[in-house]
């Protein structure tokens, strides 16, 4: 598995689209003939990826937004690992 560094920058893989779906009441990633529904925190992570921010920036931002969430950092890293293994994201 790829090691996620705080200085890494990730973006949505080509041909993938990220959007809010009312009908699903969640964020989704769309790609040729498929869709994944992102639960809670995953959507918050992907939403912040603009091809410029680093993993560290995302962690800091989410910590500030959700100050009460515990051990949020390992969740975020886990989310990056999952998204990379599924090829939803690519490294910029």
């Amino acid at each position: 598995m790829m090691v996620i560094e705080h200085t890494d920058v990730y973006a949505l893989a080509p041909h993938h689209r990220f959007q809010w779906e009312d009908a699903q009441n969640s964020y989704v990633i769309l790609f040729p003939e498929g869709m994944v529904k992102l639960h809670g925190g995953a959507g918050e992570v992907i939403k912040r990826l603009d091809g410029k921010v680093t993993v560290g920036d995302v962690i800091a931002d989410l910590k500030a937004t959700f100050p009460d969430a515990e051990d949020i950092e390992s969740d975020i890293i886990g989310m990056f690992e999952l998204a990379l293994s599924k090829a939803w994201l690519h490294k910029v």
Binding site: E21, A23, V28, E33, G34
Partner: peptide, 8 residues
Amino acid sequence: KLGAIQLG
């Protein structure tokens, strides 16, 4: 409106 998101 019904929720369809993929169009073939």
